[in-house]
Every structure is written in C-alpha cells, then in structure tokens.
Design a protein around this nucleic acid. Structure first.
Length: 600
DNA sequence: CCCGTTGCGG
C-alpha cells in the first residue's frame, strides 16, 4: 500500500522514476484517479507514461496515453521516448504525425527523437521533412536537433549536406563535433575524421571518450599503429575511464593495424566482454591470417554463453576461406539462414568462401539469390570465376554488371584483368585494359600493370613486356618483375629473365615465394652460383616464417601440403605427375594458350 | 533529449 505522503506530486514523480514494478505504477495510477482528477493538464500523466515506458510496459503506456482527453507535448514526448527505447521507429513517426495533426507544438526533444527515429528507420526523406518543420518552429540553431540531423546525414552518406549544415551552425558543442568525427570514421573517410578532430581540438574540445572511438576507428582503417597507440596512451594518461566499448575498440584497432598479439592481450584483460568484443577478436584473427585461432574463439565465446552475431559469422567465413574448410563454411551458411535474412555483406563473404573452397556453383547460387547486388557483390563474383580460371564467364559477368548499371571500379578491373590473364585471353586482356583507361576513366595502378605484364609474359611476349616496363616507368615495382620472371621461366627466355632476376634481387624481396622463383630461374639457366647465393639469402632472411603451404578439405578432413614436403608415401608419383602435367602445359601453351582454357 | 564497439571483393 502506498504511503499518503506520495500524494505530493513531486513524491509521486520520484517514486515513479525509481520503481521497477508494474504494480507500483498501477497503484499510483489508481491513487491518482481515486483522489481526484489529477490526470488532465498535470504532470502526473506524463510521469506515469514515462514510468510504464521505462520498465518496458509500452502497451500500458499507450493505453493510458490514448485514454487522455487531451495530450500535450510532454505526454507525447514520454510516449515517443517509450517507443524509441522499444526500438520502434515507425511508432515514433506515427506519433509525430499525429501530434502535428492534433496541432500540438513539438519541442526540441520531439524533433531530436523523431529525427533519430528516421535514422533507425532509414528514411532520409522523412527526416528532412521533420528537419524543415523544426526550422519552421524556430529550432534552426538548436544543438540537439542539429546534431541529430548531422548524424542522419552522415549515416545516409550525405557528407556534403552534413558539412554545410555544420558550418552554418551558430554554436557547436562536443556532441556535434563528435558526430562529424565518428561519421567520417565510420564512412571510411579517416583523414577527414582526423581533420575534424583537429578542428575540435582547436575549439577547446577533445577530451571526450566517445570521440576517441572515432579516432581509434580511423587508426584501424588507416593501419596507423602510431596514431592508434597514441590514442590508447591518451586514454591512460588522462584517466578517461575505460568501458567495454572503448576496450573493444582498442582490441579492434590493434588487430586492424596488425598487432594481433596486443589485441589478444587486451581482450584477455577485459573484465566484461560482450558479443561485440568477441566479434572484434574473431574478425581480428581472420584479418591477420589466423583462421584456427578464429575458430577456437567462436567455440569459446559460445561456451561463455555468447551467440555469434552476423558480423562475427562473416569473420568466421573469412577464416574458412583461408583454410578451405568448406564444411564449416556451409554450416555457417545454414546458421545464418536459420536466424537472419541474408543481406549483402554476409552473402558476399559466402560467395568468396565458396569459391576459395572450390564450390564455385554455390558462389553463383548465393549470388543469384541476392536481391540487390552492389559493386562489391559483382566484383566478388568476377573474382570467384577468375580464381577458377573461367575467363569466358568472367567476361559475361562483367558485361552483365555494366548492363545492370553498376559502374566498375579499380578493384573490378584488378579481378577482371587478372582473370583474363590467368585464362590466357590475351587480346581480351589488352582490349579491356585500354577500355578501363579510355571508357571508364580509371587510371591504371600498379596492380593493373602487373596484370598486363603477366598477360604478356604468359604469352611469351616478354620483350614486349620489358619494353612496357621501361616506357611506363614500372621498374621499381617488385610484383611487375615477378610477373615478368615467371613468364621468362615458362618460356625459357634467359636474357630477359636475367634482367628481371637481377632487378628482383636488388629490391631485396623478403618473401620465400619470390626467392624460390628467382632460385628456380637460375636453376633453369644452369647458373648454380646464383642459385647458391639466393638459397643463402633464403636461409639468412626469415627463419621464423611459416613455409608456404596450401590446405584442402577432403571428406571433411583438412589436408596440408607443405613446400618441398616429401613425407607422403606416394610423393614420388605425385611429383612425377606434376612434372608431366607442367611439360604438357608448356607444350600446349607454346601452341596457343587460349585453346586450353578449361571451362567449368 | 544530440555523438559510442565487431563485417565482404581487390
């Protein structure tokens, strides 16, 4: 039974804002009704609605709301808060419209919360309409309203609009500065984010914890360990209290700049972890080429009662594609289908995983089932066919892509040209290389030139390739010479090969694969002194490096193939077969490479 | 009341 002193409105308000029991709120409601009609025009109805909303009794709040003979701004706002907390942006927007229809004047928080609901509901147009209404009612310079509009613009990719509004604002607080910094950071415009952070510092802001998250994200994105480390140092020095979100961001940052051990140490020291923390760690393992660590972590997170979310599962798929675990990949696919609608990012990750695990038809199936395909989806599908050496399908995919009005980018051409070269489609490769420049206005970068050199070198046109290296001033790029050298080995061109091998050694390659290639070339040329030199270099250089290997799944079991591994009992026959195959391939390629395209 | 952590292709 409620105490009589609660009849004072202030006491009632305090009581309502503190209790977590539905029956308490109902008792207050009853009390208010039985002791006189306090509901109309008083604050009690607002507080009752807020109290019901706070404990998640939204339908109770709504019933009370609907029963009121008249509703003012506060009552509306309480109801809007309830729906916002319940993650129901549609209901917020309906209430806002109803409010306008009932001619109740919204205030700053109404606009702020409604615009935020537009963001959750991803309705930019509605948000802009609400914003013009806010301007109409005189909230043009309200920092709360403006920040929510800035955030809406940033999250919808309207960076320019956001910047224009930001410049026009009369007064700027930490929040709106932070909105800009995190907005740019999340959009991958890391340098812009840092630029705004500097602006913020110049205005005397910048000790805020949230803005540090934006900087951490920018550091990770740029791979800038110095910047990330200094943010970490700043957090420690200034005694800004850590929390799960900051710690998770630190784990993520360290993983992204390649300091996976540091990330793991940070993770282990975290007192409280969330599914997101686990997700950061797991994606970090996958990004750093530690797929087995990623798998272990997923199992472990589940043993702690956390379910992997979509983002984490994408990390697991990346891990699967690295080790070729088709079985795990398929089970992740099922897991996703059971719980979520397959959206673009997981679908793209699935396509990539399937193709790298050898199941090209499954890649295509996922691709076909996808409703809306973006640039990355198309690029991935092209790369899938490229990996499998299916040049014809790559070309038809590319054409379909342009027919669908998706503008190809530098990555499209990187996959496309590489696929054409690997399929031996020389004329096509040259044609599309110039189309890239002339028709699509993409200036070739190093990787595109590598494709072109590779293309020519594979065709045995190594002198032509060499001329191009000189005329296009590509002679400082290691991958260019590597592409040329492998062509020289295959076509036994010792003179050009010698130039390439020399250049490669000058550039001091630390990759075992490249060193092996050079050593193989010298062996082909019978230059045994040079072979010994390169071998010595290999031994001195990178002892701790894991030797090159590949993994394939057979009947659910992972088989590893190590470089120069002779431990298999049939290794002699395997090597014999490989030798025969490569000599056959050389014979065929001398005739015409394009004749031996193996279609799927 | 406005700003906060994990994701795909190259």
């Amino acid at each position: 039974m409620l105490h009589r002193t609660l009849l004072y409105p202030n006491h009632l308000k305090l009581f309502l804002s503190a209790t977590k029991y539905k029956r308490h709120i109902i008792q207050v409601h009853a009390l208010v009704i039985t002791t006189g009609n306090l509901l109309n025009g008083s604050f009690i109805s607002r507080d009752l609605i807020a109290a019901f909303g706070r404990i998640g009794e939204i339908s109770h709040a709504r019933k009370l709301f609907d029963q009121l003979p008249q509703r003012n701004v506060s009552v509306y706002n309480s109801m809007i808060v309830a729906y916002s907390r319940g993650n129901n942006p549609d209901a917020v927007l309906r209430l806002y419209d109803q409010m306008i229809a009932e001619r109740v004047q919204p205030d700053s928080s109404t606009f702020t919360m409604t615009i935020k609901a537009c963001l959750s509901g991803m309705v930019l147009e509605k948000g802009e309409a609400v914003w013009s209404k806010a301007v109409e009612f005189g909230y043009k310079n309200d920092v709360f309203v403006c920040s929510s509009v800035l955030n809406l613009y940033m999250k919808c990719g309207k960076m320019n609009e956001a910047e224009v509004l930001f410049r026009k604002m009369m007064k700027r607080d930490v929040i709106c500065w932070t909105t800009m910094v995190t907005g740019f950071a999340q959009a991958g415009k890391s340098l812009k984010a840092v630029e705004f952070y500097r602006g913020m510092q110049n205005e005397g802001f910048g000790r805020d914890r949230v803005v540090m998250l934006g900087l951490l994200q920018a550091s990770g994105d740029l791979g800038d360990s110095k910047m990330g480390g200094s943010v970490h140092g700043f957090l420690i020095r200034t005694n800004i209290p850590m929390n799960v979100v900051v710690e998770t961001s630190l784990v993520d940052m360290y993983a992204k700049v390649g300091f996976i051990e540091v990330a793991f140490r940070m993770f282990r020291r975290m007192m409280f972890k969330t599914a997101v923390s686990w997700g950061s760690l797991i994606s970090g393992f996958a990004q750093n080429g530690l797929p087995n660590k990623a798998f272990e972590a997923v199992v472990e997170m589940q043993s702690f009662g956390f379910q992997p979310d979509l983002v984490t599962l994408v990390g697991v798929l990346v891990a699967c594609s690295q080790v070729g675990s088709l079985k795990t990949g398929r089970s992740v696919h099922c897991y996703i289908l059971k719980r979520h609608v397959l959206d673009r990012v997981p679908a793209t990750a699935l396509m990539d995983m399937y193709s790298k695990c050898g199941a090209l038809s499954s890649s295509r199936e996922v691709f076909e089932h996808l409703g809306k395909k973006d640039l990355v989806c198309w690029n991935t599908m092209i790369s899938c066919y490229g990996i499998h050496g299916n040049g014809q399908e790559v070309i038809s995919m590319f054409l379909k892509m342009t027919e669908s009005n998706i503008e190809p980018d530098h990555a499209t051409f990187a996959s496309f040209l590489s696929a054409l070269s690997h399929s031996g489609l020389i004329e096509q490769g040259q044609h599309w290389f110039s189309a890239m420049i002339n028709k699509y206005n993409i200036q070739p970068s190093e990787k595109h030139y590598v494709c072109l050199i590779d293309l020519l070198a594979r065709a045995g046109r190594v002198e032509e390739a060499l001329n191009m290296i000189h005329s296009e001033k590509l002679d400082t790029a290691l991958p260019i010479w590597v592409a040329l050298l492998s062509g020289c080995i295959n076509h036994r061109n010792l003179s050009v090969g010698d130039i390439a091998a020399n250049k490669i050694l000058q550039l001091n390659p630390d990759s075992i694969g490249i060193q092996t290639l050079v050593s193989n070339f010298y062996a082909t040329a019978n230059k045994w002194k040079e072979v010994a030199k390169v071998r010595k270099m290999m031994r001195n250089g990178v002892m701790e490096k894991v030797p090159g290997h590949s993994v394939i799944e057979m009947n659910g079991e992972l088989r590893t193939f190590l470089m120069e591994d002779l431990s298999h009992h049939e290794h002699y026959h395997m090597l014999q077969l490989l030798r025969n195959l490569s000599s056959e391939m050389r014979n065929v390629s001398n005739k015409s490479i394009s004749e031996c395209v193996i279609s799927n």
